[in-house]
Design a protein around this nucleic acid. Structure first.
Length: 218
DNA sequence: ATTTTCAAT
């Protein structure tokens, strides 16, 4: 990809989110009716020396049936030059740290593909913050398995709290100097979802519970 | 009490 194309790409990723769009899609309400899109706000940090970092940021939305996580992987080469392959002679692979904030947690297939990808990228660290959990209500949902796979692949998955929404507002939203205003029940919803995620990521606990039920003949 | 979900009309 030429430098010009790269600049255009990065520019298009860096346009700020309209306030209403951010609030609607990131609202961590229990019944997220109409959120038929997923947004992904990202920060990419690149280690360029022992004490220096550069970073890029922007946001993406799913398009044309392509989930936003896979779209992000497509752009990764432009966002992270030198992440893979062997650039110029003697050049070491660069280390990157990516943090993204997604309105929905990843679906099962995206989790699997991300986990596979990351297993080949030891020089890439990924932290995922999510506003809401996607199809995680059923105890045996594939999405739950996917999240556990991601954790196993070294991804830190966290439910967004007030400070994360605040940070996103400051960083990714065309806020026109307005301050972030929390919606009703932001905190309660975040706590509820964090507990749920915690239970999901503790597979042994539920397996123990199943064993216990089996022992009790239930 | 119940409601939704990276759409499909």
């Amino acid at each position: 990809m030429s430098l010009t194309n790269k600049k255009v790409l990065l520019f298009s990723l860096s346009v700020l989110l309209p306030r209403k769009k951010f609030i609607f899609h990131y609202k961590n309400v229990r019944w997220a009716r109409g959120r038929n899109e997923t947004y992904l706000c990202f920060v990419v940090k690149r280690r360029v020396g022992p004490d220096s970092l550069t970073f890029d940021f922007g946001h993406l939305r799913n398009r044309n049936g392509c989930h936003v996580e896979m779209l992000f992987l497509r752009y990764l080469g432009a966002l992270c030059p030198g992440l893979w392959g062997y650039g110029a002679a003697g050049e070491r692979r660069l280390s990157y740290s990516i943090t993204w904030f997604c309105s929905w947690s990843p679906c099962a297939n995206c989790s699997i593909r991300l986990a596979q990808f990351l297993s080949q990228m030891p020089n890439l660290r990924l932290r995922i913050f999510v506003s809401r959990l996607y199809f995680c209500d059923m105890e045996d949902s594939r999405e739950r398995d996917g999240l556990r796979m991601l954790k196993k692949a070294g991804v830190q998955i966290t439910v967004m709290t007030y400070k994360d929404f605040f940070y996103c507002w400051q960083t990714f939203v065309a806020r026109k100097q307005s301050n972030f205003k929390a919606w009703d029940e932001l905190h309660q919803n975040s706590v509820r979802l964090a507990r749920k995620l915690h239970r999901i990521l503790q597979p042994f606990e539920t397996e123990d519970l199943r064993d216990a039920f089996k022992l009790l003949g239930l």
